[in-house]
Each structure stands twice: as structure tokens, then as C-alpha cells.
């Protein structure tokens, strides 16, 4: 354990349809711990860096599918996706974005 603190760049798609014309990216620097997931990184951003970030999750265990996002261009469950370096996080494609990473729910 006792790792030297490692930091990564997390590029997050932000978009507020009520005032932005199109999505833009904000890059956050996040210290990572061993075995950290993409959801862990989003929670770190929400709790420590920018509490205005909108995203959804529920079970944190890979069951509910509520946190499926586009990570480095691939569809993944954020709670199951281990961090292996810098990442880009975007909302699910082809769905209406409510705000930031939160899209309308696909039934």
C-alpha cells in the first residue's frame, strides 16, 4: 500500500443545456489510490473539487447499471472500471443530456 501519491488528469464533459450551446471539457487533477474506479474519481471531483458536477449512480457494485458512461470512448460501468491512467469521461451517446454526465434514462 503506502504508495507515493499519484495524480491523473480527468477530462470530464460538462454541459448545461439551459446556458451552453454545446458540451465542453473541464480537466481535473485527481490523486488516485490503489484500486480506484472511475466512479471513485467522479465522487472525488464532486466531494473535493467541483460539487456542481451532475452524474448518476446507485449501487456501486455493478448491478444497477445506473453509472454506465463513455470512458475513453468505451461504454463501461463507472463503478467497475479501474483507473489505469488519464481518462476522458463523457455521457452515454445518442441520449438527451440533462446536465453534464447525466442523460435521460434509457428504458
Amino acid at each position: 500500500m503506502n504508495n507515493v501519491e499519484k495524480r491523473i488528469q480527468v477530462k470530464v464533459s460538462r454541459f448545461d443545456p439551459s446556458k451552453d450551446n454545446k458540451p465542453y471539457y473541464v480537466t481535473y487533477e485527481v490523486p488516485i489510490v490503489e484500486r480506484m474506479t472511475v466512479l471513485g474519481v467522479l465522487n472525488y471531483i464532486y466531494e473535493e473539487l467541483d460539487s456542481s458536477l451532475a452524474y448518476y449512480y446507485s449501487c456501486r457494485t455493478g448491478y444497477c447499471g445506473g453509472c454506465i458512461l463513455l470512458v475513453n470512448g468505451k461504454l463501461v460501468k463507472a463503478c467497475k472500471c479501474l483507473i489505469r491512467g488519464n481518462v476522458t469521461v463523457e455521457p452515454l451517446p445518442k441520449l438527451k443530456v440533462i446536465r453534464d454526465l447525466l442523460t435521460e434514462f434509457k428504458k
Binding site: 448545461d16 439551459s18 464532486y46 460539487s51 456542481s52 458536477l53 451532475a54 440533462i98 446536465r99
Partner: peptide
């Protein structure tokens, strides 16, 4: 008190 003031899906 929330530091974010968004009305739309404000987790805080």
C-alpha cells in the same frame, strides 16, 4: 448550504 446553486440535478 450548497456551494453549487444549479437547479438541475444538483447533487449537493
Amino acid at each position: 448550504c450548497t456551494s453549487a446553486k444549479n437547479l438541475v440535478y444538483n447533487r449537493e
